[in-house]
Design a protein around this nucleic acid. Structure first.
Length: 281
DNA sequence: CTACGGACCTGACCGC
DNA sequence: TGCGGTCAGGTCCGTA
């Protein structure tokens, strides 16, 4: 569900609510199956024990991961929202929504809660090295596509380094961190490139167009507080507005915004894919 | 290295 | 109302 812009929005919202706050108590769902799925590292019981009493230093983002460095020893609380995860701060007396699996009472008197109907998300606690060693966090995560971290030369290099359909590359988090199904399709459309095009066959001009398009779609979406398609909401429970600006995603069969040709829906890299047969070559 | 399919879950939606 | 099938912003694993 959440890609880079949605996670970035949540990070920005949570930062003032969480930075400097101490975690007074921690509650995890009692269902052992859900616990095991949700808490990937360390074991659930250890996770609870080690998290209690810790102070959240800051709230950051790496790709689609929320990263919260804790006081001392380089440990961090890491959250991936999967498809349907929500992380937000509630008044303790508010009734928890269905599928609330994790709650942490803060010294501000408010409560940080995680809910996730599909249970694809996860919670991790440890140093960067421990999480990688425990295979809970990817050892190779690609560069951040925005905020000037990725140069055009570097993008060029990684696109040319492997041969695969460009959309498969964009979705691969070890290639580029944070792009998912929505923004991969949107970026390809803006760049005029078919998602099925082979990476090593893109021209220099096409690579440059794609580089700009990726940054454009991500930055525009952050400015609109993310795309709410099915159930994404920000850290205040509010929908973003970028879905209104999506040019191809979710518009299969509808007319192309540029040329009017019905948009083509297909399957690529195992994911629903939409593009314009005429505008994207 | 790559690609493909399936697995992991719930829930919304559609046609019958 | 109900039932089955399909689909969904994501990853991960096994198999070719």
């Amino acid at each position: 569900m959440p890609e880079l812009p949605e996670v970035e929005t949540i990070v920005q919202d949570l930062r003032p609510q969480l930075a400097g706050r101490r975690i007074e108590s921690v509650q995890l769902t009692r269902d052992p199956a859900i616990r095991g799925r949700l808490v990937r590292y360390p074991k659930a019981a250890t996770f609870i024990r080690r998290l209690r009493g810790r102070t959240i230093r800051s709230v950051e983002r790496r790709g689609k991961y929320l990263v919260m460095p804790l006081d001392k020893d380089g440990e961090r609380l890491v959250v991936h929202l999967g498809m349907t995860g929500h992380l937000r701060v509630w008044e303790p007396e508010e009734a928890p929504v269905k599928h609330t699996h994790f709650r942490a009472l803060l010294d501000s008197g408010l409560e940080l809660r995680y809910d996730d109907p599909r249970q694809f998300g996860r919670l991790l606690l440890g140093t960067q090295e421990a999480l990688i060693a425990g295979r809970a966090f990817p050892a190779r995560l690609g560069p951040e596509p925005i905020h000037g971290d990725l140069t055009e030369a570097e993008f060029d290099r990684i696109v040319k380094s492997r041969r695969r359909p460009i959309k498969a590359a964009l979705l691969d988090q070890s290639f580029l961190a944070g792009v998912g199904n929505i923004y991969a399709d949107e970026a390809c459309f803006r760049a005029g490139i078919r998602p099925s095009r082979w990476t090593h066959r893109l021209t220099g001009r096409e690579r440059r167009a794609l580089y700009s398009a990726i940054q454009e779609v991500l930055e525009n979406s952050i400015a609109a507080r993310g795309s709410s398609i099915i159930n994404y909401v920000d850290a205040f429970g509010l929908r973003g507005t970028n879905q209104e600006k999506l040019l191809v995603y979710g518009r299969s069969g509808e007319p192309c915004i540029k040329c009017g040709t019905p948009l083509q829906g297909t399957r690529l890299a195992g994911r629903g894919t939409v593009y314009c047969r005429k505008c994207q070559r």
